Simulated scan of single mutants.
Amino acid sequence: MIRDVSRSYRRALADTVEHFTGGAYRPSQKEIDDLKAEGCWNNDWEGARELIYRYFERQGSPRSQVPLDYKRLVIFFEERYSGKDWSGYIQDEPLLVDVAYFQTLDQAQIHWGFVSGAPRDSAEYVLKHRLGLAQPLLIAMEDAPGKPDPTGLRMAYRQVTDQETIPAFYVGDTVADMQTVANARKEQATTPWIALGVIPPHVKPEDRQLYGDRLRAAGASAVFERTCDITPAVVAAFLGQLAAHDSNGGQ
């Protein structure tokens, strides 16, 4: 998790739901979190569509009778999120890490990359133009099915190594992220996959424990307050635990 999307993606999602319900319903951050907790709405276009359908269902209209044009929905969403020449809400995303963080990973010889559900152009805009990374490893929306399908994660892994026994850490802030790791274990069991959760900044103090519990229930080995808390020392500690586990015969 490298950026706070509460005022960008989530704002665009809420705008989209409000627009296509005729101004009758605007989901709160908590309602969006609850939707994300279901684990199958990593794509915010699809999440917006689902909330629209659910609104009309509560009004007694079956979704099959809701005249919703998905292409128009995507266009509306992107006009707000991306805007013309990246002038949209994407400009309102506070970065949660900096180049120095990735330099510390490089110095510790930890390979890193990104598996994103965002379109490649917007993901690269953030990574290259805002964060300042030169040629980051990136698997984007166009490259693989959406999470929790593990294809994108496995593609990123194969770009780093041709082995299958090197431990892989995946850091994310949604249930779908954690489920992606669980699914990767099923498809590539020889790799030690480790899911690390991060609680997004927008989550209120009184809700952070619940949010963290949801990530743990979905498979997170540990939950952190910030991505930058996942230091090389933390990674080394997990690797030490794995080594100890293997030396004890997996007990």
Rank of each mutant, 00 (worst) to 15 (best):
S6R: 00
S8G: 09
S8L: 01
R10A: 13
A12D: 08
L13M: 10
L13N: 06
D15A: 02
T16K: 08
V17W: 07
E18W: 04
F20S: 02
G22W: 12
G22N: 09
A24P: 07
A24H: 04
R26Y: 01
S28G: 10
S28H: 11
Q29V: 03
K30Y: 13
K30E: 13
E31M: 09
I32P: 00
D34Q: 12
K36V: 03
A37I: 01
W45F: 10
A48W: 04
R49E: 12
R49F: 00
E50K: 07
Y53F: 07
Y55G: 04
E57S: 06
E57V: 05
P62G: 14
P62N: 14
P62E: 15
P62Y: 10
D69W: 14
Y70H: 12
G83C: 11
S87D: 10
D92V: 11
D92I: 05
P94F: 11
P94T: 11
L95N: 13
L95G: 08
L96C: 00
D98H: 15
Y101H: 06
Q103T: 02
L105Y: 07
D106T: 10
A108W: 10
A108N: 14
I110R: 05
F114I: 04
F114G: 08
V115T: 10
S116M: 02
S116G: 03
G117R: 01
P119Y: 08
R120I: 05
D121I: 03
D121F: 13
Y125G: 10
L131W: 12
G132L: 09
Q135E: 09
L137Q: 13
L137I: 06
L137M: 13
L138D: 10
A140E: 07
A144Q: 14
G146T: 05
P148Y: 04
P148D: 00
D149V: 01
P150K: 08
L153R: 04
R154I: 12
A156V: 00
R158E: 13
Q159R: 14
T161Q: 05
T165Y: 15
P167I: 03
P167T: 02
F169T: 02
D173H: 06
D173Q: 07
A176H: 08
D177A: 03
T180A: 07
V181P: 02
A184R: 03
Q188P: 02
Q188S: 11
Q188E: 11
P192Q: 01
P192H: 04
I194S: 05
I194R: 02
A195C: 04
P201F: 06
H202N: 08
K204F: 12
P205T: 05
D207H: 15
R208K: 15
R208G: 09
Q209C: 05
L210K: 07
L210C: 06
D213Y: 00
R216Q: 12
A218R: 05
A220S: 02
S221D: 12
S221Q: 11
S221T: 05
V223E: 06
V223N: 07
F224N: 00
F224Y: 13
D229P: 04
T231R: 02
T231L: 00
A233H: 05
V234Y: 06
A236C: 06
L239A: 08
G240D: 12
Q241K: 08
L242R: 12
A244W: 15
H245R: 09
D246L: 09
S247P: 04
S247R: 15
S247T: 09
N248S: 14
N248F: 10
G250T: 02
G250N: 06
